[in-house]
Amino acid sequence: MNNEPQDNQTSTRAGRKSGRSRRFHPWRWFWGIIVLLLLVIAGFGAVAYHNINSASDKAYKSAGINKARDTKAVLKDKRPISIMFLGTDTGALGRTEKGRTDTIMVATINPQTNKMLLVSLPRDTMTDIAGYPNQSPAKINAAYSIGDVGTTIKTVQNLLNVPIDYYALLNMGGLEKSIDEVGGVTVTSPLTFNYEGASFVKDQTYHMNGSTALKFARMRYDDPQNDYGRQNRQRLVVQALFRKSISVKTVLNPSFLNSISSESQTDLQSGDLVKLAQNYRSATKNMTTDHMQGQGQMINGQSFEVVSSSEKQRVTNELRKSLDLSAKADE
């Protein structure tokens, strides 16, 4: 994942990718953790496998819907798969409410082309919520709070006409716990600021516990780059966490794995992870990112991102191509 896009937005699509790409990075750590689990299963032996198997069992939860296709057959036949990643703030700063999925990404992994694609959907995208016509149109991030994970999957499938094979949901409370479990992370601050009692100086390096790291990653309004700056700091934290978490000592630690499983939810079972480790792992080294571009509009007193038909079709085509599926109009 070298040659990462720059931060500044321009009017071109490439420029838009550059500005929006920061939205991807905070949640790359979750994919990093999945890759870590796959590596453990593939190479660290029986003890590690037992720990991973136990953790994956705790995190498992069915989406409660009939999938668009036979996902077990897709994995067995080594065909390209899709995984939807969802992020919530539940569990962070003492929050316990269900909340909305303010991070929504669709990842495709193609073992034939040996490539992975990660597409971000704006959380305020105006769309119909699957199964809830009386509450539609609404923001896409409300699908989870109105219904559940299955509702979000069906809503995204309807929006983009792309099958969602699996999902993974993570809350920010898991980030704090995971950092504490690995003994903290070391991060260099890109700017000087104070936030909720914590102080940071530009170019100074800090060893942070989970609470401090969350404060470092959450500040937004005093950053000259606003949300993009926040995403950059979140990226620094999760990269530091990943560097710490790839050690054999860590992956053999049930407490660390439990800290992940207790704050996440997925319908990927241990057997699915084994197949991903065996057949899909190398594709994760060749990741490209994109986003669906909307235009901000105030509608009935609410701020929405309205996505044009041509932009939806572009994203549909991109995702379907990456899944080796024929072109199809978005619906």
Results as ranks from 00 to 15, higher is better:
50 H>C: 15
29 W>G: 11
97 E>C: 05
310 S>W: 00
158 N>I: 09
148 D>T: 04
242 F>Y: 02
254 P>V: 03
258 N>R: 13
186 T>G: 04
259 S>H: 06
58 K>G: 03
49 Y>S: 02
93 L>P: 07
86 L>Y: 12
67 K>T: 08
256 F>N: 13
96 T>P: 05
120 S>T: 09
248 V>W: 12
328 K>M: 05
223 D>Y: 00
268 L>T: 01
255 S>H: 09
220 R>D: 03
260 I>P: 01
287 M>W: 04
203 D>F: 10
328 K>L: 11
169 L>A: 12
271 G>H: 05
21 S>T: 01
212 T>L: 07
62 S>E: 09
147 G>E: 13
85 F>P: 06
181 E>P: 00
1 M>Y: 06
5 P>G: 09
283 A>W: 03
285 K>L: 03
140 I>V: 11
181 E>L: 03
20 R>M: 14
102 D>N: 05
197 G>E: 06
34 I>N: 12
4 E>I: 05
92 A>P: 03
114 N>P: 13
91 G>K: 10
225 Q>N: 15
37 L>R: 04
232 N>M: 10
77 D>S: 15
11 S>E: 13
184 G>I: 14
242 F>Q: 10
161 N>C: 05
309 S>M: 08
241 L>G: 06
230 R>F: 08
67 K>P: 05
125 T>I: 00
173 G>F: 12
292 M>G: 08
80 P>C: 13
238 V>G: 14
226 N>Y: 13
116 M>E: 01
8 N>D: 09
9 Q>W: 04
277 A>V: 07
272 D>V: 02
43 G>V: 09
320 R>C: 12
45 G>H: 10
36 L>T: 07
320 R>G: 09
7 D>Y: 08
132 Y>I: 00
118 L>S: 09
270 S>Q: 11
318 E>L: 11
162 V>F: 03
300 N>A: 02
183 G>Y: 08
116 M>R: 00
256 F>P: 14
267 D>A: 14
191 L>P: 06
181 E>C: 10
60 Y>S: 11
58 K>W: 01
115 K>I: 11
287 M>N: 03
241 L>F: 15
271 G>L: 00
238 V>T: 13
221 Y>S: 06
14 A>I: 02
125 T>L: 10
193 F>L: 13
153 I>H: 08
6 Q>A: 15
90 T>W: 03
219 M>L: 11
302 Q>W: 12
211 S>V: 11
119 V>G: 01
207 H>E: 06
147 G>T: 14
272 D>K: 05
129 I>D: 00
41 I>T: 15
17 K>N: 07
29 W>E: 10
309 S>L: 14
110 N>W: 01
195 Y>S: 09
134 N>S: 08
292 M>W: 01
233 R>W: 03
201 V>I: 14
245 S>C: 12
117 L>P: 05
42 A>W: 11
217 A>E: 04
159 L>F: 07
193 F>T: 15
64 G>V: 07
106 V>Q: 15
261 S>C: 12
53 N>S: 15
56 S>F: 00
138 A>H: 10
51 N>F: 00
310 S>D: 08
158 N>T: 11
136 S>Q: 05
100 R>L: 07
65 I>W: 01
147 G>W: 01
196 E>A: 12
34 I>H: 08
34 I>T: 07
112 Q>V: 12
4 E>N: 13
57 D>L: 02
